[in-house]
Design a binder for these strands. Structure first.
Lengths: 151, 151
DNA sequence: CTTGTATTGAAAATGGTTTTCAATTACAAT
DNA sequence: ATTGTAATTGAAAACCATTTTCAATACAAG
């Protein structure tokens, strides 16, 4: 399990950035560094309170902001307009996310640099970001639906 | 200019759906059917008031909802979490959007059906939506920046 | 023209996010 | 270990986008 390593690494980076190591931050870092799901602020808040009962939602927002600035987590967008946070993958990855539970898998897709370059040439746009994301329902979240359909 | 045709088409569809043709709706339809930019609710509101001064923001939201239900416009998401509305393209198109002014261009990219099918097989996800979007700054919006850089 | 219902806009409510602020806490310097 | 100080915290208030409520209005059928 490399999760513990990741957590320590994140805590080190927080300290290196001049931030203090506090109980609320530890709780939030533990959650996000180890989760395979993209979590929304409220989820982080609820889950975090299990670890650190006094945790405030305001602190969640502030910590998410810091972690995002440090590049440790990134915002992922959902079709309904909500967004959640996910520990940043190594390099740029394309995402497949379960719209029900937030489970995320990365996949190797086409390299978009060629396409991006061509589109930039064709249009005169300065392109600085791209999304290739798939959305669906993960196997676990499909089960209840299947079970209900069988009833 | 096929814009006028589009507007009439949209108004016909609204009527066919049992909705009444009102001045506020006309104003909003005229805007969205003819704009090459993705517009946010406030933009629709401001621009719409030029046409129909009494227009209320509530009506904008309600009309956007109706037009989206009818499939005439679609929501496009931006990196910062905002979203705007754009008249739906024929078939599924990949988008290139200017994050500054909302100008949208579609481009022919890879057909994602193959990739989607493969990822679905590999992961067991039921995939029901995908995004391939590029973001950047359009030529017009780049000009002021260039000019400022030269000064 | 009259009538019934969809639609409208203002105001209030809502939900997510940010700001304010006094109290607390981490951590460096003693 | 103790202290000083600035960062951090959580509660409450503020904020902004969006939704709901509701009485007044306007479309469209008869």
């Amino acid at each position: 399990m490399e999760t513990t390593l990741t957590i320590h690494h994140w805590l080190d980076l927080l300290q290196a950035a001049g931030l203090r190591l506090t109980a609320p931050r530890r709780a939030i870092v533990e959650l996000l560094a180890s989760s395979q799901r993209a979590l929304g602020p409220i989820e982080v808040y609820d889950l975090g309170r299990a670890e650190h009962p006094g945790l405030g939602l305001v602190t969640v927002y502030r910590t998410l902001e810091k972690l995002e600035e440090l590049g440790l987590i990134e915002r992922v967008h959902l079709p309904d307009g909500c967004h959640r946070y996910l520990h940043t993958a190594d390099g740029h990855q394309h995402l497949l996310m379960c719209t029900s539970c937030g489970l995320v898998q990365t996949f190797a897709g086409d390299n978009l640099d060629l396409l991006t370059g061509k589109v930039a040439d064709d249009t005169g746009f300065a392109i600085n970001e791209h999304w290739l994301q798939l959305f669906g329902t993960c196997p676990d979240c499909r089960k209840p639906v299947n079970a209900a359909a069988e009833a």
